[in-house]
Design a binder for these strands. Structure first.
Lengths: 119, 119
DNA sequence: TGAATATATGAACAATTATTCATATATTCA
DNA sequence: TGAATATATGAATAATTGTTCATATATTCA
């Protein structure tokens, strides 16, 4: 027989499907949620976030601290900015970045806790 | 002049660097943390997690619910399994997946809250 | 104004990763 | 035992994404 259309008649637990499909969030919202976690899913960005937890910093400071080029840091800061993870203030030539709110720090620490607990 | 070696003498805020470098976590730990968030950073996996919050489910159920192939779901479940996000129990031919602990659900909801608050 | 400095950014390249396809394994049941 | 079913998986492909390189913009200060 031809490959069946993937479970079209083979729902194993129809009751479960019914119950769960009522409760799960819209696909759109879950796509946004994945997008949000994507921000934390890069070690450069996580290191920037970790640094900014402790102090506002300018691009040059961050680049020096992480031993990376200004360009790489600037690109990642752009992503963090667009995602409203960081805010910034320009004073003269220097742009100071800081975490947008303490929600970010809480999510960071929740991840840390999980990592440390499973050791 | 040649492109300077990226801030080697141009530390703008030496005091900040000093303070922050003492407080930030080891790079290794932050790499692990990014790896952990990577698990949540895919919409298929987030949708699986969201489903499993509401009920244990088998591969076929999940595939039907998300309208995806068994293979795609199985591959993602493998990643979730390896990351200890889900656990499973095989009964006969059927493998039932469930969230490994309620930590996972809390991290999921923390993300949801952030998304919803910023609307 | 012009040199120096701090940051930003487009394009190219390299690396990673999700899905598909084909196939394999495991289990049930006639 | 053999057909049917549920799940798993390796390899290939397609898509996404991080960094580098070159260059642009903005600001200060002599």
């Amino acid at each position: 027989m031809k490959e069946e259309l993937e479970c079209e008649q083979t729902i194993i637990h129809e009751d479960v499907i019914k119950k769960v499909s009522k409760k799960i969030k819209d696909e759109d919202e879950l796509v946004d949620l994945a997008e949000f976690f994507k921000i934390f899913a890069d070690s450069t960005r996580i290191r920037i976030i970790n640094a900014l937890i402790h102090s506002d910093m300018c691009v040059c400071d961050i680049a020096y601290l992480l031993n990376m080029t200004h360009s790489a840091i600037s690109h990642q800061l752009k992503i963090l900015k667009q995602a409203k993870i960081v805010k910034y203030e320009k004073i003269g030539k220097v742009v100071y970045y800081s975490l947008d709110d303490d929600h970010i720090e809480r999510i960071f620490h929740m991840g840390v806790n999980h990592i440390e607990e499973r050791k």
